[in-house]
């Protein structure tokens, strides 16, 4: 396909789905700047793979998968851990919306361990099935159920205590 065609189609997809995908990234990491980085990482990869993915009509799922996996994998890569003080990835205080504007639920969600948070986001916000969530996060269905149960339990507990 021509570069122009790729650009036009890709731009149309980004314009249509960026808001939703960006919010997924934000829900996963709790930091808008980090969310923008995650989204850009995913969209760059999507652009490269666009000819293949546009045929399968699977661009959004592919991008979402990269977002949730990238955030997981960031902490798994040894040499990523060597980096320090860059772009808020070292655990600096989340930026974006002022704290008072974020709901107690969102705060509680961000306090969940990473995988529990992602399971809750995928299962209970985006409505993915157990199997879909398992594939998305590359974990077993049993682990999805376990994280889901624990995550919801901790959310309830946190919100009750507040």
């Amino acid at each position: 396909m021509s570069t122009s065609s790729r650009d036009d189609e890709f731009a149309a997809f980004v314009a249509a789905r960026q808001r939703h995908l960006r919010r997924i990234a934000y829900a996963c990491c709790g930091d808008w700047h980090r969310a923008d980085d995650l989204l850009q990482t995913a969209l760059v990869k999507l652009y490269v793979a666009w000819p293949r993915l546009r045929r399968s009509d699977n661009a959004e799922a592919y991008t979402r998968q990269i977002i949730v996996r990238a955030n997981v994998d960031e902490s798994r890569r040894p040499w990523r851990r060597e980096r320090s003080g860059l772009d808020g990835v070292d655990g600096a205080a989340p930026e974006g919306m002022p704290v008072e504007e974020r709901s107690a639920l969102f705060e509680a969600l961000q306090e969940l361990p990473e995988m529990q948070r992602k399971v809750v986001v995928l299962r209970h916000w985006l409505g993915l099935s157990v199997g879909e969530t398992a594939r998305e996060l590359r974990i077993s269905e049993g682990t999805v159920k376990s994280h889901s149960s624990r995550g919801l339990g901790r959310l309830e507990q946190t919100l009750t205590e507040r």
Binding site: A11, R23, Y26, Q40, V44, Y47, E101, L109
Partner: peptide
């Protein structure tokens, strides 16, 4: 539970990064 945050990066920036 959350809004849309600061303005997103422009679409053109994503296209350029992809290129």
């Amino acid at each position: 539970s959350f809004g849309d945050g600061p303005a997103p990066r422009p679409v053109d920036a994503h296209v350029a990064a992809g290129r």
